[in-house]
Amino acid sequence: KSPLTGYVRFMNERREQLRAKRPEVPFPEITRMLGNEWSKLPPEEKQRYLDEADRDKERYMKELEQY
């Protein structure tokens, strides 16, 4: 499975939280809201997602080498 970027990891995590709080909001609007939230997120909060993405990318590269 391909590695996910930090942005995609953030979107996946927050999308479920936002949909639970506001189920009436259409999917494209949720994506737009989360995109704005990501762009305003402080670098230190973004870093968690970026670090997870880096670890996932390393895992993926190792799997490719073994293939």
Results as ranks from 00 to 15, higher is better:
Arg19His: 03
Glu65Ala: 10
Leu64Trp: 05
Pro3Tyr: 13
Leu18Cys: 02
Lys62Trp: 04
Asn36Ile: 11
Pro28Glu: 15
Arg14Trp: 02
Ile30Pro: 01
Pro26Gln: 07
Pro23Gln: 07
Asp56Asn: 06
Arg19Gly: 09
Arg19Cys: 11
Tyr7Gly: 03
Thr31Ala: 07
Gly6Asp: 01
Phe27Thr: 15
Arg55Tyr: 11
Ala20Gly: 09
Pro43Gly: 04
Met11Pro: 00
Glu29Phe: 01
Leu41Ala: 01
Gln17His: 04
Arg59His: 10
Glu58Cys: 05
Tyr60Asp: 14
Leu4Trp: 10
Pro42Cys: 07
Gln17Pro: 06
Asp54His: 10
Val25Arg: 06
Arg14Pro: 00
Lys57Thr: 06
Glu45Gly: 05
Tyr49Asn: 01
Pro3Ser: 12
Pro28Phe: 07
Gly6Arg: 00
Gln47Lys: 13
Lys21His: 15
Lys46Tyr: 00
Phe27Gly: 15
Arg9Ser: 03
Arg55Lys: 14
Trp38Cys: 00
Tyr7Asn: 02
Glu13Phe: 04
Gln66Trp: 06
Lys57Pro: 06
Glu52Met: 04
Phe10Arg: 02
Asp56Glu: 13
Gln66Thr: 13
Lys1Thr: 04
Pro3Trp: 11
Glu65Gln: 07
Met61Cys: 11
Tyr60Ser: 15
Met61His: 12
Leu50His: 15
Arg9Cys: 05
Lys46Ala: 04
Glu44Ala: 10
Val25Gly: 02
Thr5Ala: 12
Tyr49Pro: 01
Gln66Lys: 15
Arg55Ile: 04
Thr31Ser: 08
Leu18Arg: 00
Pro26Met: 04
Gly6Val: 00
Leu18Met: 11
Lys46Leu: 03
Arg59Leu: 08
Ala53His: 03
Arg55His: 09
Glu58Gly: 09
Arg22Ala: 12
Asp54Gln: 09
Glu58Met: 03
Arg55Leu: 07
Arg55Trp: 08
Leu34Phe: 00
Glu13Lys: 10
Thr5Glu: 07
Met11Phe: 07
Glu16Lys: 06
Val25Asp: 12
Gly6Cys: 15
Gln17Ile: 11
Leu64Val: 13
Lys46Val: 03
Arg19Ile: 14
Glu58Arg: 10
Tyr49Glu: 09
Arg9His: 06
Pro23Thr: 04
Phe10Cys: 01
Lys21Trp: 01
Glu44Phe: 05
Met61Asn: 14
Lys1Val: 02
Phe10Met: 01
Arg9Gln: 07
Phe10Ala: 03
Glu16Thr: 06
Val25His: 04
Glu63Lys: 08
Gln47Met: 06
Glu65Tyr: 02
Arg32Ile: 04
Arg19Trp: 11
Leu18Ala: 03
Tyr60Lys: 11
Tyr49Ala: 02
Arg9Glu: 02
Glu63Gln: 05
Ile30Lys: 02
Glu45Tyr: 01
Arg14Cys: 01
Asp56Cys: 03
Pro3Phe: 12
Leu50Ile: 03
Pro43Asn: 06
Gly35Cys: 03
Arg59Tyr: 11
Leu18Ile: 09
Val8His: 11
Arg59Gln: 13
Thr5Pro: 11
Tyr7Cys: 09
Leu41Arg: 00
Arg32Lys: 09
Arg59Pro: 12
Asp56Gln: 04
Phe27Asp: 15
Pro43Tyr: 03
Glu24Met: 07
Leu4Gly: 02
Ala53Asp: 05
Trp38Arg: 01
Val25Ser: 05
Glu65Met: 08
Ser39Pro: 15
Ala53Asn: 06
Asp56Ile: 00
Gln66Ala: 08
Val8Pro: 02
Leu18Val: 07
Arg15Cys: 12
Glu44Asp: 10
Asp56Ser: 07
Asp54Lys: 10
Pro3Asn: 14
Gln17Thr: 06
Pro23His: 02
Arg32Phe: 01
Ser39Tyr: 07
Tyr7His: 00
Val25Phe: 02
Gln66Tyr: 09
Lys1Phe: 15
Pro26Arg: 06
Ala53Leu: 01
Lys46Pro: 01
Arg32Gly: 03
Ser2Asn: 13
Leu4Asn: 15
Pro42Leu: 01
Glu45Ile: 08
Pro42Tyr: 00
Glu29Cys: 01
Leu4Val: 04
Arg22Asp: 13
Ser2Cys: 14
Ile30Arg: 03
Asp54Ser: 11
Tyr60Arg: 15
Asn12Cys: 05
Pro3Arg: 07
Tyr49His: 03
Leu4Gln: 12
Phe27Met: 15
Glu65His: 13
Leu18Phe: 13
Arg22Leu: 14
Glu13Val: 07
Lys57Gly: 09
Arg14Gln: 07
Leu4Glu: 15
Asp56Trp: 01
Asn12Gly: 04
Lys1Leu: 03
Tyr49Thr: 02
Met11Arg: 02
Leu41Cys: 01
Met33Leu: 12
Arg22Trp: 15
Lys46Ile: 00
Leu41Ser: 01
Arg14Val: 03
Met11Gly: 02
Glu63Val: 05
Tyr7Lys: 15
Gln17Gly: 07
Arg22Ile: 13
Tyr49Leu: 02
Lys21Gln: 14
Gln66Val: 09
Glu29Val: 04
Met11Cys: 14
